[in-house]
């Protein structure tokens, strides 16, 4: 009950100016955690899809879901952690890649299913997708000093099977 579990909450909301601020504002005003947040329009241009990762015990998550539903711009939402779902995050990593390091870096990128998008004499830029923890694992696997820059999109997700979040 008091465990702070990680929740991936996905929201369909009106594609209106200010809608994103309302969500962000709610979290800061009520002292909830946001670990990541990603938002983009959907196939229906009047709707945006916002996915966020938060932590909290059962009671806090229940309040977060209720408070989000109370926002006038929120049309529908789903807590993907409560259902079978796919979670994906995109990461771009710029690494040092010279000498012996170069082959090792390429090998690790391959193991994690990454692609090298840009190559210079001394660097690689690697693209990886996966769950948050897979991306964490990649960063742990490579030498810390080799990392030049890390960009992560934040997690997004979709339910498995026939379940679909649509209006």
């Amino acid at each position: 009950m008091n465990n702070n579990n990680r929740h991936l909450i996905s929201i369909l909301m009106e594609n209106e100016a200010g809608a994103l601020s309302r969500v962000a504002n709610l979290f800061s005003a009520r002292g909830y955690n946001i670990e990541s947040l990603t938002v983009a329009p959907t196939d229906d241009p009047s709707l945006s899809r916002l996915t966020l990762v938060t932590y909290g015990n059962e009671q806090i998550i229940e309040q977060i879901v209720k408070q989000l539903n109370k926002l006038i711009d929120v049309v529908k939402l789903i807590d993907l952690s409560e259902t079978d779902a796919i979670e994906r995050e995109l990461m771009l990593v710029k690494t040092k890649a010279s000498g012996e390091q170069r082959a090792e870096m390429k090998r690790l990128a391959d193991i994690f299913g990454g692609h090298v998008l840009d190559v210079t004499e001394a660097t690689y830029t690697i693209e990886l997708t996966g769950t948050g923890s897979k991306l964490d694992n990649f960063l742990r696997a490579i030498e810390k000093e080799a990392i030049l820059e890390v960009v992560r999109s934040g997690a997004t997700g979709i339910a498995l099977g026939q379940k679909a979040l649509r209006v």
Binding site: Q59, Q67, K70
Partner: peptide, 11 residues
């Protein structure tokens, strides 16, 4: 009438 009022402070 407000679901978020329910079980907010007291279960």
């Amino acid at each position: 009438i407000d679901p978020s009022s329910i079980s907010k402070n007291v279960q």
